[in-house]
Every structure is written in structure tokens, then in C-alpha cells.
């Protein structure tokens, strides 16, 4: 009985040590690594992606005008919103609030600090031309107004460039040398 107890306590000790070692590795990794992308503030205009996506036949590029041809995908300007919202679009009473907010809004309501570091060159247009869909990288979280950047780190970029992920999509082999994406 006592020997069993001793065995159990030894096992427990070893399990605890293993756990402590593995935990400290991951804790250090978490603390020292890239900070998580901060959830961005909603901004002055209450925008809901769920109302503006595939369900109404809108492509991402309609508002994020650079996502097919430019490096930056850009955020829509007020003029881009007004292309459609020049007319009251639904009978929903909320539309009046939206219209009045839009009337008072800045020309560029969604300016924000770029999250990607300056030494990284990322070109949306090249990826779109290669057949990468917006949802492949940004996920479907945009429906909940999430940027999807939790997935973005150098390792995830490299994995796709090396052909280790998205195998079913059959992308052309992409450049993996440093100077392809860095300056």
C-alpha cells in the first residue's frame, strides 16, 4: 500500500516537473513573441460586415479597393460608402441614424496605424492575382468584424509559400527567399 502511494507520488512529481518545464517554455514564447493584434475600435460609423458581404453580393474589393491591384487593401472612404448609401437602402428605421452619421462623418473614417512592420512588403494584388481568396488569410471572422490577423505571423506566411498549407488550392510555388518580402 505504501509502495503504491510512493509510486504515485513519484509519478505525480515527475508529471509536475514536466508540466512546469513545458509551461515555462510556452509562457516565455508567449511573453516574448509578437504581441497580439489589438482589436480595433469601431470608429465613428457603426459598420457591420455581416450586412455587407456575400449575402448581398458585395465583393471585398468593392470597399477595400486595393485588394485586387495594390499592395494595401485600403479602407473605404466616405465617398465609397456614399456610392450606395446615397439612397435609403432599407425600410429599417436604423437607416435614418446611419444616414445622419454618414452625413457628419470624416472623409476617411477608418484611418488607423498599420499593424504590419515597415520592413515587411505585403502586396494584396499579387496574392489576389495568384488566386488566393480573401477568406484564405483573413478567415471568415470578418463576419464578426474581426480582422483575422491573429493568424498572421511569418511562420504562417512561410508555410503557405513553401506549399505546406493550402495544398488543395494548388497555388504556384511562391518565393521563399528573404528579399522577396523584406526590405
Amino acid at each position: 500500500m505504501r509502495r503504491e502511494k510512493e509510486k504515485k507520488s513519484r509519478l505525480f512529481k515527475w508529471a509536475a516537473i514536466c508540466f512546469a518545464v513545458v509551461f515555462s517554455f510556452f509562457l516565455a514564447d508567449f511573453l516574448m513573441g509578437e504581441p497580439r493584434v489589438p482589436e480595433r475600435a469601431v470608429g465613428s460609423i457603426p459598420f457591420d460586415h455581416a450586412l455587407h458581404g456575400d449575402s448581398i453580393g458585395l465583393d471585398c474589393a468593392a470597399c477595400h479597393t486595393g485588394s485586387r491591384a495594390s499592395a494595401n487593401a485600403f479602407m473605404p472612404s466616405k465617398a465609397d460608402c456614399m456610392d450606395c448609401h446615397r439612397l435609403p437602402l432599407t425600410e429599417n428605421p436604423g437607416i435614418e441614424t446611419l444616414d445622419s452619421v454618414l452625413a457628419k462623418a470624416d472623409d476617411r473614417p477608418w484611418s488607423h496605424k498599420r499593424h504590419l512592420p515597415d520592413h515587411v512588403v505585403f502586396h494584396h494584388g499579387v496574392h489576389a492575382a495568384a488566386g488566393v481568396a480573401c477568406a484564405d488569410c483573413h478567415g471568415r471572422g470578418y463576419m464578426q468584424n474581426r480582422y483575422g490577423a491573429e493568424l498572421f505571423n511569418m511562420q504562417s506566411c512561410l508555410k503557405c509559400h513553401r506549399g505546406e498549407t493550402f495544398k488543395e488550392k494548388g497555388f504556384k510555388p511562391a518565393a521563399t527567399y528573404c528579399a522577396a518580402c523584406h526590405r
Binding site: A28, D29, M32, F74, M75, S77, R114, H115, P117
Partner: peptide, 30 residues
């Protein structure tokens, strides 16, 4: 045990490799 835990923490820190400098640019409309 403490040394082992510290070594694992160092390994984790080396693995993570520090965070990148934030960008000085702004994302805007086109």
C-alpha cells in the same frame, strides 16, 4: 528543477525571438 525550468524559459524566449517594431505608416483610403 528550477534550473531546468529556467532553461526551458530561455529556450522559449529564444524560440519566440522578440517582437517587431511597429509601423510608422497609416492605413487610409486609397
Amino acid at each position: 528543477v528550477i534550473v531546468l525550468v529556467l532553461v526551458a524559459a530561455c529556450a522559449g524566449a529564444f524560440f519566440a525571438g522578440g517582437s517587431s517594431q511597429n509601423s510608422t505608416n497609416t492605413i487610409d483610403s486609397q
